[in-house]
Amino acid sequence: MSHEIVDARRLLCPMPVIRVQNRIAELPAGTLVKAICSDPGALSDIPAWCRINGHQVLETRVDDDEYIVIVQVGENT
């Protein structure tokens, strides 16, 4: 399935969260967003932000030195 990509490499937290947040604000519910980050903090911060704002994290993983978070956009109320 295709993903919207948020490239947050070389950004330190909370910038990856801000990039994901701003991208999600423009997307319809159900869209998949793949965030690629180099700050390991993204693995805790993006899921925390998703939990409180009603979006679902489908996967988190580490690829070499990159931290990947896949999010399904919830209803933007």
Partner: peptide
């Protein structure tokens, strides 16, 4: 382990947080 305290606060309160 690391956490962003603003996100942590929001989660404790069950409220949305806009960064």
């Amino acid at each position: 382990p690391k956490r962003n305290n603003a996100l942590w606060s929001a989660e404790q309160l069950g409220m949305k947080l806009h960064i």
